[in-house]
Amino acid sequence: MARMKFLCDAERCIECNGCVTACKNENEVPWGVNRRRVVTLNDGVPGERSISVACMHCSDAPCMAVCPVDCFYKTEDGVVLHDKDLCIGCGYCFYACPFGAPQFPQAGAFGLRGKMDKCTFCAGGPEKDSTAEEFKKYGSNRLAMGKLPACAEMCSTKALLGGDGDVIADIYRARVFKRGKGSEVWGWGTAYGKPPQGQPAQGGKT
């Protein structure tokens, strides 16, 4: 089975926010919820780099570990999903997540949290695939249609890659060989762990 991962190539990302727009359009996310965002470091000065970040679908997901109602689950593709019928909106997943992925629509005054919403890798939720209920709660289920996440598909410079980890790592490796620089696989060390000792590293992991 494929192990789905995201990879953002900092040498290619031009901060167009196309991925953010694609995500919002595809999933019709509630107001105030941003499943994906683009962050620019050293904005406006030489050496500026931009990175698109969303839920990385971690191997050992911290959100899953701290959830008090056990609403997270992992699909056989390695996608971390959650069940909004179980979620109580406590915010613990948001405290634990290194990427700031969990989002909470405001459910009342004083910032009362509603049910958590996050990137689903365009894989929907626990409802039956591609149903209206699934779309209403989790957005599009492109994986069930045999497609990849809308953000990565939409990326104009192909900086954001989404798909089987081995495939996108190969694409990225070919790029690094060709250009001879920019080998950092952003977020992979945090999300998927360090590679086992003795194996050739796939570039520096940050």
Partner: peptide
């Protein structure tokens, strides 16, 4: 955890990696 620039409004949206979450967990 140095914050960068992002168009998304909110607290700490410019932070790419918040490593203390692991300690919390």
């Amino acid at each position: 955890g140095q914050p960068g620039y992002t168009t998304v409004r909110g607290v700490e949206t410019g932070v790419l990696v918040e490593s203390r979450g692991q300690t919390y967990r």
